[in-house]
């Protein structure tokens, strides 16, 4: 079939289609506008595309900077918190509790035995002041909060011979240190 029409095909191929009119290109140019004049091929691809290696290196560098920053902030924060905690006690000592401790009879350094004809009849320790003296630091010791207690120890003696009484009042100071453990 192809051989039958090959001559005719050759003859047809000898015909050249008519060209468009002179004004036709201008019509298309007007219709295309600016878009017809710009090509992606004109864009410098090398300038547009960033090589993968550079992107990877930047990502690694940014990650390292971030990691180092995070570690630095963590260390600083830990140190700062430790210092803050060291400056503040875990719990403030309650004067009432300390008072009870101070008033236990065994802890009173008062006269217990008779002195001559005078027999001890009564004894008491009056807490007149509790002073929080803040945090003290001794060399090679952990920090501690210091409380200073001021007492008036009063002992009453009786002479059974003439039923006379004698009262002795002695000021006393006691210092407590509450150990602080920073966390």
């Amino acid at each position: 079939m192809k051989d039958l029409h090959s001559d005719l095909e050759k003859e047809l191929m000898g015909l050249s289609p008519s060209r468009t009119g002179t004004g036709f290109e201008q019509r298309i140019s007007d219709a295309l506008g600016l878009q017809g004049e710009l090509l992606v091929q004109d864009i410098n691809i090398e300038e547009k595309v960033i090589p993968l290696g550079i992107v990877r290196n930047w990502i690694i560098a940014a990650s390292l900077i971030f990691l180092l920053g995070f570690i630095g902030v963590s260390i600083y924060f830990q140190k700062f918190m430790s210092q803050t905690l060291a400056n503040s006690p875990i719990a403030h000592a309650q004067p009432d509790n300390v008072k009870n401790i101070a008033l236990t009879p065994d802890s009173l350094p008062m006269v217990k035995n008779a002195i001559g004809p005078w027999q001890p009849r009564d004894r008491e320790a009056i807490l007149v002041e509790v002073r929080n003296e803040g945090i003290v630091r001794e060399p090679e010791l952990p920090p501690a909060q210091q409380f200073r207690y001021r007492y008036y120890d009063t002992s009453t003696f009786t002479d059974t011979a003439d039923n006379s009484r004698m009262r002795v009042t002695v000021p006393r100071e006691q210092v407590f240190q509450v150990k602080l453990e920073p966390y």
Binding site: T20, F24, L32, Q35, L39, Q41
Partner: peptide
Amino acid sequence: ILQEAFVRIWRLYGHTG
């Protein structure tokens, strides 16, 4: 028709050249 067809196609794919 030719103008419209060409402009349409060129606008879609003409940027490839």
